[in-house]
Protein backbone atom coordinates (compact mmCIF):
# COMPACT_ATOMS: atom_id res chain seq x y z
CA UNK A 1 0.00 0.00 0.00
CA UNK A 2 1.34 3.37 -0.99
CA UNK A 3 1.25 6.33 1.36
CA UNK A 4 -0.79 8.45 -1.04
CA UNK A 5 -3.29 5.68 -1.48
CA UNK A 6 -3.63 5.30 2.25
CA UNK A 7 -4.19 9.04 2.75
CA UNK A 8 -6.85 9.15 0.09
CA UNK A 9 -8.73 6.36 1.79
CA UNK A 10 -8.42 7.90 5.23
CA UNK A 11 -9.80 11.18 3.94
CA UNK A 12 -13.00 9.37 3.04
CA UNK A 13 -13.13 7.12 6.05
CA UNK A 14 -10.47 7.07 8.69
CA UNK A 15 -11.66 3.84 10.19
CA UNK A 16 -11.72 2.12 6.84
CA UNK A 17 -8.24 3.36 6.00
CA UNK A 18 -6.86 2.16 9.31
CA UNK A 19 -8.50 -1.20 8.82
CA UNK A 20 -6.98 -1.62 5.37
CA UNK A 21 -3.58 -0.64 6.72
CA UNK A 22 -3.96 -3.15 9.53
CA UNK A 23 -4.99 -5.99 7.21
CA UNK A 24 -2.09 -5.20 4.91
CA UNK A 25 0.66 -5.22 7.55
CA UNK A 26 -0.65 -7.13 10.54
CA UNK A 27 1.13 -10.38 9.61
CA UNK A 28 4.33 -8.51 8.94
CA UNK A 29 4.16 -6.64 12.21
CA UNK A 30 3.21 -9.79 14.04
CA UNK A 31 6.24 -11.59 12.62
CA UNK A 32 8.58 -8.81 13.72
CA UNK A 33 7.13 -8.57 17.20
CA UNK A 34 7.04 -12.33 17.62
CA UNK A 35 10.64 -12.61 16.48
CA UNK A 36 11.71 -10.18 19.16
CA UNK A 37 9.49 -11.28 22.02
CA UNK A 38 9.34 -15.02 21.36
CA UNK A 39 11.51 -16.00 24.30
CA UNK A 40 10.05 -13.67 26.93
CA UNK A 41 6.44 -12.83 26.16
CA UNK A 42 3.16 -14.66 26.05
CA UNK A 43 0.87 -14.62 23.06
CA UNK A 44 -1.34 -12.07 24.76
CA UNK A 45 1.64 -9.77 25.28
CA UNK A 46 2.59 -10.18 21.63
CA UNK A 47 -0.94 -9.35 20.48
CA UNK A 48 -0.95 -6.30 22.74
CA UNK A 49 2.37 -5.17 21.35
CA UNK A 50 1.06 -5.54 17.79
CA UNK A 51 -1.95 -3.43 18.71
CA UNK A 52 0.30 -0.76 20.20
CA UNK A 53 2.40 -0.71 17.03
CA UNK A 54 -0.64 0.04 14.91
CA UNK A 55 -1.99 2.62 17.34
CA UNK A 56 1.34 4.43 17.10
CA UNK A 57 1.17 4.24 13.30
CA UNK A 58 -2.38 5.65 13.33
CA UNK A 59 -1.32 8.44 15.63
CA UNK A 60 1.60 9.31 13.39
CA UNK A 61 -0.56 9.57 10.28
CA UNK A 62 -3.23 11.38 12.23
CA UNK A 63 -0.72 14.12 13.04
CA UNK A 64 -0.11 14.66 9.30
CA UNK A 65 3.25 12.95 9.48
CA UNK A 66 4.85 12.08 6.19
CA UNK A 67 7.98 10.21 5.15
CA UNK A 68 9.78 9.09 2.04
CA UNK A 69 9.65 5.51 0.82
CA UNK A 70 7.52 2.47 1.35
CA UNK A 71 5.17 2.24 4.29
CA UNK A 72 6.39 -1.24 5.17
CA UNK A 73 9.79 0.13 6.15
CA UNK A 74 8.23 2.71 8.44
CA UNK A 75 5.84 0.24 9.99
CA UNK A 76 8.63 -2.31 10.40
CA UNK A 77 10.74 0.26 12.22
CA UNK A 78 7.91 1.17 14.54
CA UNK A 79 7.32 -2.53 15.20
CA UNK A 80 10.93 -3.18 16.08
CA UNK A 81 11.16 -0.24 18.44
CA UNK A 82 7.91 -1.09 20.09
CA UNK A 83 8.89 -4.74 20.45
CA UNK A 84 12.23 -3.71 21.91
CA UNK A 85 10.39 -1.52 24.38
CA UNK A 86 8.20 -4.48 25.34
CA UNK A 87 11.21 -6.74 25.57
CA UNK A 88 12.96 -4.37 27.97
CA UNK A 89 9.83 -3.98 30.02
CA UNK A 90 9.16 -7.69 30.23
CA UNK A 91 12.73 -8.67 31.00
CA UNK A 92 13.33 -5.94 33.57
CA UNK A 93 13.20 -6.93 37.22
CA UNK A 94 15.00 -9.75 38.94
CA UNK A 95 16.70 -10.83 35.76
CA UNK A 96 18.28 -7.45 35.19
CA UNK A 97 21.65 -6.54 36.59
CA UNK A 98 22.94 -3.04 37.03
CA UNK A 99 26.02 -2.07 35.06
CA UNK A 100 27.55 -0.86 38.30
CA UNK A 101 27.37 -4.31 39.87
CA UNK A 102 30.37 -6.61 39.91
CA UNK A 103 28.25 -9.45 38.62
CA UNK A 104 27.91 -7.76 35.27
CA UNK A 105 31.34 -9.15 34.28
CA UNK A 106 30.15 -12.70 34.75
CA UNK A 107 27.10 -12.28 32.56
CA UNK A 108 28.73 -10.47 29.70
CA UNK A 109 27.73 -11.96 26.41
CA UNK A 110 30.47 -13.45 24.33
CA UNK A 111 28.75 -12.35 21.17
CA UNK A 112 30.51 -9.96 18.98
CA UNK A 113 30.06 -8.71 15.45
CA UNK A 114 31.68 -11.81 14.01
CA UNK A 115 29.33 -14.04 15.89
CA UNK A 116 26.38 -11.94 14.86
CA UNK A 117 27.36 -12.22 11.23
CA UNK A 118 27.76 -15.95 11.54
CA UNK A 119 24.43 -16.11 13.34
CA UNK A 120 22.72 -14.27 10.54
CA UNK A 121 24.35 -16.56 8.01
CA UNK A 122 23.21 -19.56 9.96
CA UNK A 123 19.68 -18.24 10.07
CA UNK A 124 19.69 -17.59 6.37
CA UNK A 125 20.94 -21.12 5.63
CA UNK A 126 18.40 -22.59 8.02
CA UNK A 127 15.55 -20.83 6.33
CA UNK A 128 16.92 -21.92 3.01
CA UNK A 129 17.08 -25.57 4.06
CA UNK A 130 13.57 -25.41 5.50
CA UNK A 131 12.37 -23.88 2.27
CA UNK A 132 13.70 -26.94 0.45
CA UNK A 133 10.87 -28.88 2.09
CA UNK A 134 8.39 -27.03 -0.08
CA UNK A 135 4.83 -26.15 0.77
CA UNK A 136 2.97 -26.94 2.91
CA UNK A 137 5.81 -28.61 4.88
CA UNK A 138 7.67 -25.28 5.16
CA UNK A 139 4.68 -23.56 6.68
CA UNK A 140 3.95 -26.50 8.95
CA UNK A 141 7.52 -26.61 10.27
CA UNK A 142 7.69 -22.84 10.79
CA UNK A 143 4.28 -22.60 12.47
CA UNK A 144 4.95 -25.66 14.61
CA UNK A 145 8.52 -25.14 15.78
CA UNK A 146 8.89 -21.38 15.48
CA UNK A 147 5.46 -19.98 16.24
CA UNK A 148 4.62 -22.92 18.53
CA UNK A 149 1.10 -23.26 17.15
CA UNK A 150 -1.02 -26.33 17.60
CA UNK A 151 -1.93 -28.77 14.87
CA UNK A 152 -5.44 -27.39 14.75
CA UNK A 153 -4.24 -23.85 14.22
CA UNK A 154 -1.81 -24.99 11.56
CA UNK A 155 -4.58 -26.99 9.90
CA UNK A 156 -6.61 -23.80 9.55
CA UNK A 157 -3.65 -21.98 7.99
CA UNK A 158 -2.75 -24.69 5.48
CA UNK A 159 -6.35 -25.82 4.97
CA UNK A 160 -5.76 -29.37 6.13
CA UNK A 161 -7.05 -31.57 8.90
CA UNK A 162 -5.16 -31.64 12.18
CA UNK A 163 -4.37 -35.34 11.70
CA UNK A 164 -2.89 -34.69 8.28
CA UNK A 165 -0.89 -31.80 9.73
CA UNK A 166 0.53 -34.02 12.47
CA UNK A 167 1.45 -36.72 9.91
CA UNK A 168 3.07 -34.30 7.50
CA UNK A 169 4.81 -32.52 10.36
CA UNK A 170 6.47 -35.74 11.48
CA UNK A 171 7.61 -36.61 7.98
CA UNK A 172 8.80 -33.05 7.28
CA UNK A 173 10.81 -32.99 10.49
CA UNK A 174 12.63 -36.21 9.57
CA UNK A 175 13.31 -34.85 6.15
CA UNK A 176 14.64 -31.56 7.58
CA UNK A 177 16.96 -33.40 9.94
CA UNK A 178 18.41 -35.31 7.03
CA UNK A 179 18.94 -32.10 5.11
CA UNK A 180 20.58 -30.37 8.04
CA UNK A 181 22.85 -33.36 8.72
CA UNK A 182 23.91 -33.47 5.13
CA UNK A 183 24.69 -29.76 5.31
CA UNK A 184 26.65 -30.14 8.52
CA UNK A 185 24.23 -27.99 10.49
CA UNK A 186 23.10 -28.78 14.00
CA UNK A 187 20.46 -26.97 16.05
Amino acid sequence: MKQDEFRKITKKSRHKGYRMLFDEYCNYVYAIVFNRLRSCASREDIDECVGDVFSDVYRYFDSDGSFEGDMSGFIGTVARRKSSYYYNRLTSGSDSISLDDDEVQSVLSGDDVENEVSQNEFQRLLIEKISELGEPDYTIIIQKYYYNRTSSEIARIVSMTPEAVRMRCGRALKKLKTILENSGMTL
Binding site: N35, R36, R38, S39, F122, R124, L126, Y145, L187
Partner: peptide
Protein backbone atom coordinates in the same frame (compact mmCIF):
# COMPACT_ATOMS: atom_id res chain seq x y z
CA UNK B 1 13.36 -29.56 18.08
CA UNK B 2 13.10 -25.80 18.28
CA UNK B 3 13.81 -23.01 15.85
CA UNK B 4 14.97 -20.68 18.59
CA UNK B 5 18.00 -19.81 16.52
CA UNK B 6 15.72 -17.79 14.25
CA UNK B 7 15.06 -15.21 16.98
CA UNK B 8 16.31 -11.64 16.54
CA UNK B 9 16.69 -12.21 12.86
CA UNK B 10 17.17 -9.51 10.26
CA UNK B 11 14.35 -8.14 8.25
CA UNK B 12 14.86 -10.40 5.17
CA UNK B 13 14.63 -13.50 7.32
Amino acid sequence: FDLKSLENADNPI
